[in-house]
Design a protein around this nucleic acid. Structure first.
Lengths: 341, 341
DNA sequence: CCTGTGTGTTAAAACGTTTTAACAAGCCGT
DNA sequence: ACGGCTTGTTAAAACGTTTTAACACACAGG
């Protein structure tokens, strides 16, 4: 109960604790970190002093000295137009939530970096010693900037560059899962509606679709839609298809926002789902679930993926792991009314 | 192209920049922050030196000197059982996403603190100069700890203590909206299924329900369900109600997880929604949207709420604002098949 | 008695900024 | 020629930790 200085609050520091415990600051540090041996009796004194004063270590000072911020950031490389809207809550946030708990379990904080146009500014203003990049695009600007800055980075979804560690989402397997299912429920010819960017998932879907079409003697119809106008673009594409009189009994449309557009176009065009046309999409998010009828999609095991990526990242940071990719959990199908036979 | 030291990387510091530009470190700092005047020509030299060396300020050092971390944290006080599962992606993440962009716009990072049992550890290990608390409970442990630590805090949803700034979610208005709607679509007697905790929203729903019941001469039936077992508990409660032969033509069930349970119990009990029973819930999340039939709910304007709270928080941190609450946007009804007349 | 070996502690340096107080130079009005 | 004012710059201190090198001490083996 000694009268404090008149300064506002003056949080106690390690030297206050040292003084109270009758030791030197260095010893307090050692007691806290356990890096060097300190006498049991001394440690006791220090602990009571800490409790007494309500000492909390100053993270900034600690960070500055050690160079470790104990912080990782999560970036979405999707254009804001894609990440925004109803999907915003989906993919990215689902991963972020899981990554946050995985990080916290390793006593690391996760900071949420919203989709932005200017990665440079963000990289300057925010301190982190590692980064997660969700679904990097080919030559992703955020990703390249990160690795050029020497910041340890783990991708979720395979990146275009080599030597960057990642947790694969195994897009080919996902594509096969959906394509096989379409055939199984009786579809015989279906177009692929896909994003125009060179994002890895788009590439995989195109490749697997081509292979499957060739294999089944099905004519290939690949419609590329700019990702920024996903929903409207997909609707337009399907409407054009209908107008052209092309017949099809299924649609493979990975991006959920585009799936919404497809469903609208089908409704407007008087096609019944699933009786006349079966529709499947990739991400099992709000959109897939709330469509009428609800859409068959894929359980990507995002929670596990996020946890693995986070673990890999912290190992990378402390130098316990190399840049080799992490095997990913196998995705499974979720069948819904949109493909009911 | 001078050969660098053999040390790993050695990021350039402010003194390197100063040396390259032929000035003192202090001047570089001034040029960067713009706090003091520096000659236009000198500033130019500094800027090119910065670009040349690829200098990025060390945030930790900056933080330590200024005491500002430029970081805020967002806490959910919900028990993990509630925050987990499908709802995890909903309420909390929707707010977090919006808060992140609002924070970033003010050049502040948002760190995501997952629901935890041990707030003390987190508060110790993570540096922040402000906090958002989502839906604080009465005498919320996280909240009390935060204010005791003197960390500026803004709540989303009214806290129990006084003097803590918050953005109201206006639970009474929300409750009234739903209750009025139930009456309007022809319901004459309906129970309230509500969380057992003393969370502000629960209290408000109880109060408004009582008032409305008294006013309409409707018998009161309030069923309290422990929040940890929301879905199962609510299902059980409704099943018991049916077994007891109590007749009702509507259900008011604010928590979406409980709504799922209610719908299941009604289905199992052979009651048709909306023909025999109308159901309304509060949060328009995945669950409300994917129920069959989809549930009438409320647009809480979470995006705006989160932005307001974040703005208030940064103002609070820099001392530009007092602890008075922030007026909140008015919620609106979203009518869905579950109350179709 | 001397040398070596732990053990536990400490004083001081270092981390990279920002801020403070001082200062030099130029200009103005007497 | 001198004091006062402005403008731009700087040297040095400060922020709170961790780490390094040194030290004091006890104790063992010769």
């Amino acid at each position: 109960m000694t009268s404090p200085q008149n300064s506002p609050v003056k949080r106690p520091t390690v030297v206050d604790v040292a003084q109270a415990a009758g030791v030197s600051p260095g010893t307090v540090s050692n007691a806290l970190s356990g890096k060097r041996k300190v006498d049991a009796e001394t440690r006791k004194r220090i602990e009571v002093a800490i409790r007494e004063l309500g000492y909390r270590p100053n993270q900034a000072a600690r960070q500055m000295r050690t160079g470790q911020t104990k912080t990782i950031a999560i970036f979405s490389s999707m254009p804001p137009a894609v990440a925004a809207g109803p999907s915003k809550l989906g993919f990215l946030m689902e991963i972020a939530a899981s990554a946050a708990v995985a990080a916290m379990a390793r006593n690391t904080a996760l900071i949420l970096v919203p989709p932005i146009e200017t990665p440079e500014d963000t990289l300057k203003s925010v301190a982190m010693d590692g980064a997660l990049v969700v679904e990097p695009e080919e030559d992703d600007p955020v990703l390249t900037r990160l690795i050029r800055s020497g910041i340890p980075t783990v991708c979720i979804g395979r990146p275009s560059g080599a030597g960057i560690p990642y947790v694969d989402l195994d897009y080919p397997a996902i594509a096969d899962l959906l394509i096989r299912h379409l055939f199984e429920v009786g579809a015989t010819r279906f177009p692929l509606i896909v994003g125009a960017s060179r994002r890895a998932s788009n590439l995989a879907f195109r490749a697997r679709y081509r292979a499957a079409a060739a294999n089944a003697d099905m004519p290939e119809t690949v419609l590329e839609v700019p990702e920024a106008e996903a929903e409207a673009g997909a609707a337009e594409a399907v409407t054009a298809l209908l107008a052209a009189g092309q017949d099809f009994d299924g649609v493979l449309v990975p991006t959920d926002a585009m799936a919404t557009g497809v469903m609208r176009a089908l409704r407007d065009g008087g096609r019944a789902v699933p009786d006349q046309v079966r529709v499947v999409t990739r991400y099992d998010g709000v959109r897939a679930q709330t469509e009428t009828p609800a859409l068959t999609s894929v359980d990507l095991k995002l929670e596990a993926v996020a946890a693995l990526a986070t673990q890999k990242l912290v190992e990378l940071i402390v130098g316990q792991a190399g840049p080799e990719p992490v095997p990913c959990p196998t995705p499974t199908l979720i069948t819904r009314p949109s493909t009911k036979p």
